[in-house]
Amino acid sequence: MDITLKGAALAAFTVALTGTALAQSGSVDQAVGGYSFSEAAEEAEDTKDFHSNDGVLTFAIVTHTAGNGFFDPVYVGATVAGNMIGANVLLLGSESPTDDPAREIEILNQIINDPTIDGIIMTTPQVGAYDDIVRTAQQNGIPVATTNSYDPNLLDRNSISHTGQDASAAAIAGEALVQCLIDRGVESGSIILPNDTAMGNIEVNNRVTAAFNAIVAKLQENGMLENFQIDAGPENVGVSADMNDPANSIISLIESRGDVVGAFAGNNVFTPALASAVEQTGNTDTMCAYGFDLGPAQQDALRAGNLTGALGQQPFLQGFWPVMQLYLQIDRGISAANLDTRAQLVTQENVGEIGARFEN
């Protein structure tokens, strides 16, 4: 019997016979610096005894709203990362379904002096409110990472890693909204961008501005700008709406104008409210309505046609990467390695693909 073995088949046959893989052409097993990669990949001996000196790393992740489901995949991502590196991860946050930075700061102040904490991950939606936390963490020798919302003026901002979506990603929804109008043959009307700037969330304000600018630019590009009234308030950070009664606020905006054909909401408070307003005003499957985040309410609204599209900001990564960043900072001395999680546009057509592994 004549058997001819070539290439990969020969290598596989050799392994089967000898139990030893042949060296691959171009393989590298030692660094130019003289050390082996397997040795360099090992965790440092004192990593697990960092700060708390108890043989295990313990990180706390604290968010400004754990009560509406958005941060669920963030907590999942943090847990996955903790499992991978053998660290404890404390999942903490405001119990409120709406933004509650005051409660988050209260929790942070409770844990900042806990001797078992080796690192802190926090959201920073309220600009200027977290400097004392950072200062105390530094004094206690605890590294900090921020996630989700971004405070550009945070104490020592450039030395602290951030994982999150740049507000400019909202332009994706603005462009999609105009394309929706074009596809549906809508030639005129009002477009509203509701927001409550009293929330003090600069990230959301910037999203609204980015979406507004994208809507204006795309309408102008298609020679349609003069036919539409775009209302994002006097400073383009959102037409005034009430965070405590968002659905009725948006209904009032729709009914007072009478010709609303498009809308954009910039966060997890106003997006479900926008969907509810679309349904209650009889605009299901007719208004080009776009929003933010991909919680259960948004997914249901997409399936029902009360939202045309929503932007996901990859929240799994917003939990996973900060844990890994703190670990790398402790074990490798790597810091301030930011990650932009960008955005994915989800519509009625592909909403079924979202959340199958808890990542969105």
Rank of each mutant, 00 (worst) to 15 (best):
G67V: 09
T308S: 15
T136E: 13
A11R: 15
Q325P: 00
F316I: 02
A304L: 09
E279L: 10
T197I: 15
N222K: 15
I142H: 01
L22I: 15
F228E: 13
N338C: 06
S36Q: 10
E39F: 09
E45A: 15
F264K: 05
D242S: 12
S149D: 11
L181W: 12
R207E: 07
T281M: 04
F212K: 11
T14Q: 08
S159R: 13
T18D: 11
A8K: 15
P296E: 09
D46F: 02
T116H: 10
V278E: 06
A9W: 05
P296S: 12
G34C: 08
D132W: 03
A356H: 06
K218I: 09
I230P: 12
D72I: 01
T146V: 14
L10E: 14
I107M: 06
T146N: 07
G77E: 02
V28W: 05
F50I: 01
E203R: 04
A301F: 12
S159W: 05
P143G: 12
S188C: 03
F59R: 04
G82Q: 03
E359A: 03
S335L: 06
I105E: 13
N201Y: 00
L22E: 15
N267K: 14
F13Y: 12
D29F: 14
L91E: 11
T124F: 02
G238D: 08
T123Y: 02
